[in-house]
Write a protein that binds this DNA or RNA. Structure first.
Lengths: 208, 208
DNA sequence: AGCAGCATCAGCCAAAAGGCTGAGAGACCA
DNA sequence: TGGTCTCTCAGCCTTTTGGCTGATGCTGCT
């Protein structure tokens, strides 16, 4: 049995120490370092080149988790990166996988799930929490409901409370085009008003 | 120096074990039990009557933290209740204090802050994280911006994407009254459209 | 070459939302 | 008793939004 070196990245002290305590109960894990931010994570990966990086996505200030994952990947490290976060928003999942994450765990996962995910990650296996998997599955089955890049961009601005006119100005398109995009967004989200679209976007798509 | 018995309430295993590890470094803390839900918390308080209850607000399913606090207070326990959560939404802060919380800590608090808050709580002192305090302060300075109960109720429904007509039906009031309330809400939140009101409500007021 | 998806735009119409003024009833407090 | 808050409602008018139909240019795939 080989030892798996782990780097923990989370801006919450309690979470880091909790994870460390949990992993400490297993003989094959070795937490070699802890980072409280994306920047710090990049440094510590350089220094320790851990086998696995367990990373939160929401990181108070500065670089967020997604960006950190992306940069780690660019530096062609061979670390397996495991997302460990509170929310299972569609947008986050897609972006994380896109950035190069190996797995996606939710913070309410049981210790056994966490252990299994880390062990799987070093072997190149993707492990994800059940709700995360079901969301991905859902997207595969209903590709019609996936927003186009432009639509996502518009939806993101929509959640800031802009009017159609303002949206048009911001995106350099006519109000008519804004309305067309909105109609498509509403259909895909399964809503009928912009109010409901905003609510859905912030809650389900995680556009905060 | 007396020992302070503590009950931890959080639906995330990692957070509980992190908190336990942190408190374990101090000689005067004794974590006597851990609960993963509001219901469990009530039971365990009965059994152990700890001096302090450290409680998260967002608890996956079932009873949430606020309700748990309320019920603990009704059972005239003498526990000091300390909220330990991720967000500092106005609504949550007010409701928690209202329900009987002694202090309000954010999860990015440092170990020292956490220790101090718990020690303070048993002595009847209110301790809260800086961002929390500043929000309360803000409310005291601008009482004009505090929503009335009815307005808060309406805003909450608004975030579900209902139309004025639907809001009226849901609250058994006319559409005219709905519009009046909305106008007041917009003024208090500093917005001009329902879209912006929803965005503000979900993000700032924590109405998810 | 042709087709599908995406992004762009127009015009028309009905419905919804928002701004404004005014007003009555009940609660609470000085 | 009088003042202040809160909640309730009405009418009027403008702006915004949403539904519908149809159309163009571009890209990428087959």
């Amino acid at each position: 049995m080989t030892t798996i070196s782990v780097l923990l990245v989370d801006d919450h002290m309690v979470v880091r120490s909790g994870l460390k305590a949990l992993l400490g109960t297993q003989p094959d894990f070795d937490v070699v370092a802890e980072a409280a931010s994306g920047e710090e994570a990049l440094e510590l990966v350089e220094q320790h080149s851990p086998a696995v990086v367990v990373m939160d996505l929401a990181m108070g200030a500065g670089m967020d988790g997604i960006e950190a994952i992306r940069q780690l990947r660019q530096r062609n490290g061979r670390q397996a990166i495991l997302v460990f976060t509170t929310y299972d928003s569609d947008a986050d999942i897609v972006r994380a996988v896109d950035a190069g994450a190996m797995g996606y765990l939710l913070k309410d996962a049981s210790p056994d799930e966490i252990f299994a995910a880390i062990r799987g990650a070093v072997q190149g296996k993707s492990v994800m929490s059940a709700p995360v998997a079901s969301r991905l599955f859902q997207q595969l089955r209903n590709p019609d409901e996936v927003l186009t890049p432009r639509e996502a961009e518009l939806l993101s601005l929509l959640t800031e409370g802009l009017s159609n006119r303002e949206l048009g100005q911001r995106l350099f398109i006519s109000e008519a085009t804004v309305k067309t995009h909105l109609a498509h967004i509403y259909a895909k989200l399964g809503v009928e008003t912009r109010a409901a679209a905003i609510a859905t976007a912030i809650r389900r798509e995680g556009m905060r």
